[in-house]
Design a protein around this nucleic acid. Structure first.
Lengths: 314, 314
DNA sequence: GTTTAGTATTATGAATTTCGATAAAATCCC
DNA sequence: GGGATTTTATCGAAATTCATAATACTAAAC
């Protein structure tokens, strides 16, 4: 009956400990014990088996926990909406964002910073994962928003195109192309490449692009992330085709040179599309909505439309 | 913070009255007033504008109410699941079912009765509506289950085929076909019909069937429900093609005669398919699940599989 | 204005929650 | 196994919260 008791129970379960669950709620261990005991009494079943340590849920407890764990957060979200109505800067809470390595590092930090300034009570929980794990995490509700490249279609995920990054040639500063603003595609013929693992979409896109322009090439090394590829180009182990924004720091530091690739026909430009994904049939928390607005540059200033959404759902 | 307080607030809003909301919760009006006041204090906003009578929600109150109204029911559903685990007959609560007129009257009462015996704590809230209203009601969450005929596909509704009813010719007992076990389709040529409104699927199916067998016919009267059609046939204003199960009472009473229609090819049998619908991305309440199991004849005896579903969701 | 129906406020007693202290239980470590 | 350690249950007192009846206030209807 008591939302506070539900939260205590959930925290106790999460930490598998009464003491920790109590501390989480700034109450004494005694209180936590009694609160849970009271829940059990009210339901007429035992929720937690205390005869094992760390404690373990009973069958009933598992069902109850599965049901309750969302409920508390759901209520806090409601309070959040009401308070945000009063003053939009009041938005509190955490939004979980999963991103592929190469997006997060170069784009996200600035957004996270701005977000923190605009909504002092809110925070962003960033996670950098392998592309497939990003999708999984969004799908299973571990995070609300996901950032991926080369989005596909999923029946249960909403995909919001975000930006198209130009792909450029990254070369060692001593390379013959360095210093040129651009090179024609044809001149890549015969180059040795450092590229992405062949199970990544970006690799297939690059290969298809090069084949399409009848460029012969050799892949000397394969990695699953951009950072390592850049290190390999610095050695140098070859050249690489990478999204331009991921090279800014190295170009500024002079450790790498970026060269545009000329002669692309407009229908087949070599770009990396980035997209934001979230669960389609799942109402985003207010915090997540605001962060999404920040990312997409949408103006969240109109509370009318924002609330319209809320109403439309229920 | 207090689930009880949320329920009080919701009931007060529902009834637009503190006194009634209080009565609903078997507490004094004073308590209700204090409970809501406390909520307002906790949130730091006014939820209800008392300067108007009947009282009215503030903007904040509306947001809060929209969020909270599900929450209480959601919690009770969780308790329900836990208690049902203890003893399946413990399932309590109400399942809302919307049905088209002609299904409800003839099939549902027996199921409702059996359901009441099997789950003494549960009840079925039956509603008889126009076909389009049934779909609407399910779609908007007014009821959990819907019973319709000639189902289409909807992206957000799950459609469960239920049964196929044979369509027979209903005639007045004095009609020349009465007493015959069946008549060939061809002999319907030239008959005068009482039929369904032309915007109903069942009408289009019947017409198509008759045209397909090159039967000439005239429709003398049109109604939007089976009961009225039967009354018209009793006058008699003509014959009608109706689902066999909807005629049992009249045939038993001798006020109408049912005649099978011979000569249908198996690919084009004239039947009325019935289906159960519910929202696809919306977990059914335990009560609704059990009622659905009863309807479809599924054995709900295995609590393991039932809980498997619960887990799969979260 | 007066009446009527509904709501806020107040004081009081009942129920509850909380805490610290302590007993009991499970695990760990030897 | 047995003591040390950590964790949880239980208890009584204090504090808080809650529910109620009685009463004062307010909005609408006549």
């Amino acid at each position: 009956m008591h939302l506070k008791a539900l939260k205590i129970f959930c925290d106790v379960v999460r930490w598998a400990s009464f003491s920790r669950g109590a501390a989480e709620n700034r109450i004494s261990q005694s209180s936590a014990s009694q609160a849970v005991h009271q829940l059990e009494q009210h339901l007429g079943v035992k929720l937690i088996d205390r005869s094992k340590r760390p404690l373990v849920l009973t069958t009933h407890g598992k069902v109850y926990y599965d049901g309750c764990k969302d409920l508390v957060g759901r209520y806090l979200e409601i309070e959040n909406r009401v308070k945000a109505l009063e003053d939009d800067h009041n938005v509190v809470g955490t939004v979980g964002v999963a991103s592929i390595y190469s997006v997060g590092l170069h784009h996200m930090s600035q957004y996270v910073k701005i977000f923190g300034e605009q909504y002092p009570g809110a925070s962003v929980q960033l996670e950098y994962l392998h592309p497939t794990r990003v999708v999984e995490s969004v799908f299973q509700g571990g995070v609300e928003l996901g950032l991926i490249s080369y989005p596909r279609k999923w029946p249960d995920l909403k995909v919001i195109p975000w930006r198209e990054e130009e792909m450029v040639l990254a070369v060692h500063p001593s390379h013959r192309f360095a210093g040129l603003g651009s090179v024609p595609v044809a001149r890549l013929d015969g180059e040795t490449f450092v590229s992405f693992d062949s199970d990544l979409t970006i690799r297939r896109v690059i290969d298809r692009f090069l084949r399409h322009h009848d460029v012969q090439f050799r892949v000397a090394l394969e990695f699953d992330n951009i950072e390592t590829i850049k290190r390999a180009v610095e050695i140098p182990s070859g050249v690489a085709i990478l999204p331009a924004p991921t090279l800014t720091r190295e170009v500024a530091a002079g450790t790498l040179a970026a060269v545009r690739i000329d002669g692309q026909d407009s229908a087949d430009r070599l770009t990396r599309p980035l997209a934001i994904i979230h669960r389609r049939h799942h109402q985003l928390s207010l915090t997540a909505s605001r962060f999404l607005e920040l990312l997409t540059g949408e103006d969240g200033a109109s509370p009318t439309s924002a609330n319209g959404h809320v109403h439309a759902k229920s």
